[in-house]
Design a protein around this nucleic acid. Sequence first.
DNA 1: GCTTAACAATGAGAAATTCTCATAAATGAA
DNA 2: TTCATTTATGAGAATTTCTCATTGTTAAGC
Lengths: 305, 305
Amino acid sequence: MIEHSHLRIIAALQQNGTLTEAANTLCLSQSALSHQIRSLEKKLGVGLWEREGRYLRLTHAGQLFHQVAQQVLPVLAQAEQSLKAYGEGRQGILRIGVECYPCYEWLTGVTGEFMRQMPEVDIDIVSKFQFSGLEGLLNHHIDILVTPDLIKQQGSYYEVLADYELVLVLAADHPLAVLQQISPAQLAAETLLTFPVPLQRLDIFNHFLSPVHLKPAGHKVVESLELMLQMTELGRGVCVLPRWLAEGRCKGGTLTVVRLGEKGMQRKLYIAMRESDKEIAYIRRFIAVGRERADLSFQAVTEVD
Amino acid sequence: MIEHSHLRIIAALQQNGTLTEAANTLCLSQSALSHQIRSLEKKLGVGLWEREGRYLRLTHAGQLFHQVAQQVLPVLAQAEQSLKAYGEGRQGILRIGVECYPCYEWLTGVTGEFMRQMPEVDIDIVSKFQFSGLEGLLNHHIDILVTPDLIKQQGSYYEVLADYELVLVLAADHPLAVLQQISPAQLAAETLLTFPVPLQRLDIFNHFLSPVHLKPAGHKVVESLELMLQMTELGRGVCVLPRWLAEGRCKGGTLTVVRLGEKGMQRKLYIAMRESDKEIAYIRRFIAVGRERADLSFQAVTEVD
DNA sequence: GCTTAACAATGAGAAATTCTCATAAATGAA
DNA sequence: TTCATTTATGAGAATTTCTCATTGTTAAGC
């Protein structure tokens, strides 16, 4: 069996001229090296070196072995270094799951800054799951999940990423646009534009309409944020978005934002991870960057408000 | 330090589901394997497996390690196999030195058959030497030398490859073409066509003309066999070649072959190798194939004669 | 040719490692 | 819960690898 030490031995012998020197660079005694090369040749059943007086020359077999060493040694060295980096939490692949479209919008701002801070960590964004994001997390398909839903489950661990407010977005010339706030009954008369997600999984349905047993008059699914805003602008419906996201897109004045209910709909954005991963350095960093960006952009728009 | 055994361990653990099974395929006790993976993780300072109940799952670091194993293991396995083949003399690189043009002609017939018989042995033909072919042999630039000159020297070993006769080749309408044999004096009146080799290294000079203190009237150097025969045909000179080579090219009838001296010039073709290499299987095979081809072709033409 | 300094090989025992055995702990299914 | 299966652990045996001390070689200088 070819061992790592054998590869290092043949490489060292080629680099240093003599056995004694090679032994020094390998931190071995001359004797140990002599024993080693002898036993290696015996094991392989082929001469690797030809003794020429006091010097050694590679045989053809030895040359082949040396080539293999040149090929394999750097791979192992690289691997060892990467693993050490992993051990220190510096390097890795962070697979991020997103379950909601606004989360996705928010992510784009975070990943850039994160990658700038931790260039050794690769990022992979996953938005399709067999069943749910939580299941993907516990099955190791993703490492963290950005979600507005807190579902405690064995092995999972949640942290709050940011608070935000869900608001109703309307065309500026919409009859309801003049109001300060809107009631469930008023919303129920409208056509709701949503991303392609079942109504039962929408906060606006679960926490605003459903408690008073109402359903929107209409429901249209749109694929993109741009399309959603455009249709809202044209009075084809209304939509519900985080305030920071909505106000960032209302610059033109053709859209207006209205509070949902008396106190507004306060929501939280969570980040979920496996219990066992919660101390990993690059995950901690991701959360820190994420919070910072959230505070920055969420605050910035509400200030303007 | 990543050892070969570690690579095999992570590969086996991935292939077999459980630690116990993996231990079996590795011919280890379950205990040994358990100890090993523990100490490996400790050494690397990073978890490679995540214990999930009674099963193991690779961490990110483990996945990286596994990829490295998949990359390196086949290389080492292949190397081991090649080295075994070297040990059994099945595989190698045979660097053949040729010092004479006719040797070169003869080689082309041999290498093809040899490569057919030993497809795992590479052949390299070397015809330029710093000093001499023998020096190239002892300096390990070549492994065998095909030569008509036997020069005993420490560490070198010769075997006879074939006997052959040097003959004079003339244009069919040359005045000397009617003779059965030719004397040194008769040859000395001619212009000799030779390959670009010093006269002092030519058999015809050393063993035919020189002993009676004669030199050819003229000496022209030509680069190729074809050119040499063409010039002979046109009466621009005469040349000396092995009988098997000459008669193979005299089919047209425009060239004639004449014996040199009363008994003809009998020569031997030798194959030289390093003393230490004389038992190597593919060298033995090369000699066998070389002799066989020599007997075949040398005989064939003399039969026709 | 003899001497000498540098290098390589060898043998024996020490040190480190790797393995097995015996046994305990943990897990998942019935 | 029990039970079969799998993993973990500790201790000592077996093996491997290393060092020390010594001897054998080699090339170069006188």
